[in-house]
């Protein structure tokens, strides 16, 4: 499997990258970790004329808390999250997620930003970002803008990014006290896309759920936020009964398709099972937080 020919540029600055994208309208692709893009090139399912590699663009690999949020630079690798004490202590859903994306070697290159910006409903991070209420920072010819994750994820393989815009950073609000989060993925084997994946974040006020976020992987043409389930949980005691009911609502919101990973009704049932498990785990972590 050999890619078709393309030109390659590794700009030294963001503005250079943007102008390269601008100058090759629609024919250029941004290369971050390349773990989704290069296989597409090899199978000749993508044939851009130019690859704009971000590896030399400065200040895209930061992973730190600032101004009340976690900032994940566009070039931060999955493995960086996986081995970060900060992530492990405060953002368990991100740790869960980055530990199950593809396989450990792929995670050494795959970026969190790429996982989200590829907008594959089978990718794991979009669901987590939905549950965590993330925002995306994009930069383009018209400057920088902030896009909520709900608006960022438009459809299968489609984001709100313009062809000459670059995803700079993902921002995850720092969780309030007594918060917990989790991502639970069901896969056929390691390295596989999710049959279904569910991300959950809850904030507890005593035993009452003060805030809830949910995100579903591979349950619809795009990563899905089951809003009714979230709304239902707020103000309820976070016990087995309310969790089960929320899981039912999440399953109703899902719109999976039958494929090699299972029939649609099974996947819907898995939304129920995994939502239950993700919420249980998130609640347990919130109680310990």
């Amino acid at each position: 499997m050999i890619p078709s020919a393309f030109d390659y540029a590794a700009p030294q600055s963001l503005s250079e990258a943007i102008s390269l994208l601008q100058g090759n309208a629609g024919q250029a692709k941004v290369l971050a970790g390349g773990q989704s893009l290069i296989p597409l090139l090899k199978f000749r399912l993508a044939g851009p004329e130019l690859l704009v590699d971000l590896r030399k663009v400065p200040a895209l690999d930061h992973l730190e808390e600032r101004d009340g949020h976690l900032a994940i630079g566009a070039m931060v690798r999955e493995s960086a999250l996986e081995h970060s004490a900060l992530i492990a202590s405060r953002y368990p859903a991100l740790l869960d997620t980055s530990s199950v994306v593809a396989d450990p070697l792929v995670r050494n290159y795959a970026t969190v930003g790429g996982n989200v910006a590829h907008a594959d409903p089978a990718n794991d991070h979009p669901a987590t970002m939905l549950a965590l209420r993330a925002t995306a920072i994009a930069n383009g010819p018209n400057g920088q803008r902030t896009i909520s994750i709900d608006d960022f994820l438009v459809d299968t393989f489609e984001t709100a990014l313009a062809p000459d815009e670059v995803l700079m950073e993902l921002r995850v609000p720092r969780p309030a006290a007594h918060s917990g989060s989790a991502y639970v993925k069901l896969e056929r084997k390691v390295g596989d896309y999710a049959i279904i994946g569910v991300a959950a974040q809850v904030t507890l006020d005593g035993e009452v759920c003060a805030q809830a976020g949910l995100g579903l992987t591979n349950a619809a043409p795009r990563a899905l936020r089951p809003r009714e389930a979230e709304t239902f949980l707020v103000g309820k005691r976070l016990d087995e009964e309310s969790i089960r009911h929320a899981a039912e609502l999440a399953a109703s919101a899902a719109d999976p398709v039958s494929d090699l990973r299972g029939p649609a009704d099974y996947k819907r049932a898995m939304v129920r099972t995994l939502t239950t498990r993700a919420l249980r785990l998130a609640a347990q972590r919130a109680r310990q937080a």
């Binding site: 390659y8 390349g34 090899k42 590699d53 396989d103 070697l105």
Partner: peptide, 21 residues
Amino acid sequence: GACTVLVDGVPSKSCTLLAVQ
């Protein structure tokens, strides 16, 4: 993973990297 090499110490699937990278 048959193509795994270390790039700056990091195990990497060399079939999914371009030499220019």
